[in-house]
Design a binder for these strands. Structure first.
Ligand code: MN
Ligand code: MN
Ligand code: MN
Ligand code: MN
Lengths: 137, 137
DNA sequence: AAGCAAAGTTAGCCTTGGCTAAACCCTGAA
DNA sequence: TTCAGGGTTTAGCCAAGGCTAACTTTGCTT
């Protein structure tokens, strides 16, 4: 019945839109780092398979990551993160792991925890993430 | 080190993209219902103010909601939900309230709970939502 | 009843992030 | 050494969801 303050409410939705603008980049650098750690190389085809998109879409997205200084521009070579990309990947992975651990502690099954974490992780304030980390123990 | 199964991982990202496709509609019908409940009418200019966008953007989005049978098409008149729109609004509000109650119980401040809930709410499986509801008590 | 201000709509533009199809590079096997 | 196939990029398309600017409608005030 009682509506929030208009400006306050607007700030919430603006925050959601900001999160959505950076989340593709976060997920890309995180996966590139994981592939490099596990296999030594990260290939465009692997990203396409694991994101569920075409290689053309991956190429498009990678062009933006290169433009934004997160991925090295080396055509036809294995993908490689810049220092900024590596930093973003580490932060994303740490946050992702906290969210999964939290959901498991909440009693959610592993499959659903991994599923929901992939979207949830981009909408957490520092305060909420800290509370989740504390709860997960 | 150990990577998830590629198909499983792809299904997670596909789910996130599906959630993002429906979330604008869910937030619109929820806010329209709230405005109607609190004021009797929902105007385009109110939506624009509370979403933090221009009235032109609201008009664009409303065209999609009308196309999809969620909002009545009555140019220059107060906004009005269809039966389908009302049902979606009620489900969205119920879920939103569970998420806020859960975050508060977790120990997060009210301001941050309301902030994070707006994005979080669209990435919760039934299992996770049930766990949150149980935890919120 | 007229006029004006606020509300709503329309036109035209942009970026993101999807797609298909086709061209391009690279490499290992013949 | 060639060349076929796999991986990568490019070209061209699309919808969602933002924007500004201009136009139309409504409704209130005088
Ligand atoms: Mn993610
Ligand atoms: Mn992630
Ligand atoms: Mn929301
Ligand atoms: Mn989201």
């Amino acid at each position: 019945m009682t509506l929030p303050d208009p400006g306050e409410q607007a700030r919430r939705f603006i925050k959601v839109r900001e999160a959505h603008r950076s989340e593709v980049q976060q997920d890309y650098v995180e996966l590139i780092a994981d592939l490099v750690a596990a296999r030594g190389v990260a290939r465009v085809v692997d990203l396409a398979e694991r994101f569920g998109v075409t290689t053309a879409t991956v190429a498009n997205t990678l062009a933006r990551l290169k433009r934004d200084g997160l991925v090295e521009d080396r055509p036809y070579r294995s993908l490689c993160l810049t220092a900024a990309g590596t930093a973003m990947a580490e932060a994303s992975r740490a946050r992702h792991d906290i969210v999964v651990a939290f959901l498991l502690r909440l009693g959610v099954s592993r499959a659903v925890a991994e599923l929901d974490a992939e979207g949830l992780e981009h909408h957490l304030s520092a305060e909420t993430l800290a509370a989740m980390e504390g709860f997960a123990g």
